[in-house]
Amino acid sequence: MRNLRDPGKSLRAINLNLLPVLGELLRQRSVTKAAESLNLTQSGVSEALGRLRTQFHDELLVRVGRKMVPTALALALAPRLDELLGDLDKLLRPATFEPAAVEREFVIATGDTIILALGDQLITRLSTLAPRTTIQFISIQYVTRRDLEEGKVDFIIIPRGVIPPSAFDEEGLDWMKIYREEWVCITKRDHPRLKGELSLESLNSLPSIACRFDDSSYLHGALPGRTNPDQLRVSQFTLLPLLVAQSDAVALVQRHVAKWFADHIPIDVFELPIPFPQLDVCAFWSAVQRNDPMHQWLREQVAEIVQTGDSPWLPSVAIPTAGVSHTE
């Protein structure tokens, strides 16, 4: 009587690498032909057959004259083995990835100016290439690194190096540079108190409007060189042009924001009277998302939007995709 052993113990004991050899032996019914098909030596296939016989406690293939005839157990195993090997092949073979077939919502924590820079082209690309995918933009104000690591947020897109590590630690996150922000001043068109240029003196004499999320925010659109207080503070940079166009105030905004609004409402754009640092806007994501095909696809779309310059509102200084990197 056959010794029926614990199936769990049997599974742990078997070398799964032997199963393709058994499958080929049952198809070819010849050690020589199986060895040729598997690109192995005859001795290697013979050794594998010996180990399989030990594992299954059965001869599996018996030599009858010049032929090898499968035993009853081998005949019973054959269809199940073919199915198992087929499933393993599907498991190990890279899945076909079609963005158009993916139904997914991405959550991106960022600011309104970045949405303005990327939004129009993202709409076009998603509707054309991935119509079942949605991007939900949320404010970065209350988003933490843990939200990124736990998958509650797919990307955080912010200027790199602005927020100190105590508030947002970049160490260990994957990231890529998207574009570089330049800053300018805006006023209403043909401001009566300005004569074609903005000086430090006029910067201090005019009322001002700034962007700041709250008192603890590190992203603060304060005018450089201005000593007087701001008359208004708002939580969105894209409100500044609308408010400036209706008042005598001056405001500091990103160049691409100023360019967009100057084409739509009556505002003038001035270079800053003193130097102000440019900022690299970067996307951050968790290493858990690194090899996610749809996540990779969306990263590629964002990089291409900037690289191709399809949007007229994007910053003129683009960062190439070679800037993509990650830390282990």
Rank of each mutant, 00 (worst) to 15 (best):
R51S: 14
S37H: 08
N291G: 06
K177R: 15
V153Y: 01
R233S: 14
Q231A: 13
D190L: 13
F137C: 12
K33C: 03
E304M: 13
I156T: 05
R255P: 00
P99G: 08
P266V: 03
I135F: 04
Q141D: 09
T96A: 15
P70Y: 04
I115W: 06
L279N: 11
S166K: 11
Y218I: 03
F237V: 10
D89G: 08
Q246T: 09
I115A: 08
D89W: 13
W183P: 00
L52C: 05
E103H: 12
L200I: 12
S216K: 12
N39K: 15
D263V: 03
R132D: 03
A245Y: 01
S235Q: 10
H256K: 04
P164R: 11
L232Y: 10
D214K: 02
D87G: 01
F284T: 00
A101H: 09
R132Y: 01
R233V: 12
V257W: 02
T41G: 10
A101N: 12
W285K: 02
I305R: 01
S316L: 11
I209N: 00
F284W: 05
A35M: 06
L84F: 15
R29V: 03
I267E: 01
H191Y: 05
P192F: 04
V269L: 06
H295K: 10
T134H: 09
A109T: 09
G44Q: 08
A76E: 15
L49D: 05
T308D: 14
Y179M: 11
L22C: 03
P277Y: 08
I157C: 02
R132N: 07
E98Y: 05
I163K: 05
H264V: 06
A109P: 03
G119Q: 06
I157P: 00
L26I: 08
V324T: 10
A222D: 14
E105D: 15
K33Y: 14
Q28F: 07
S208L: 02
I178Y: 00
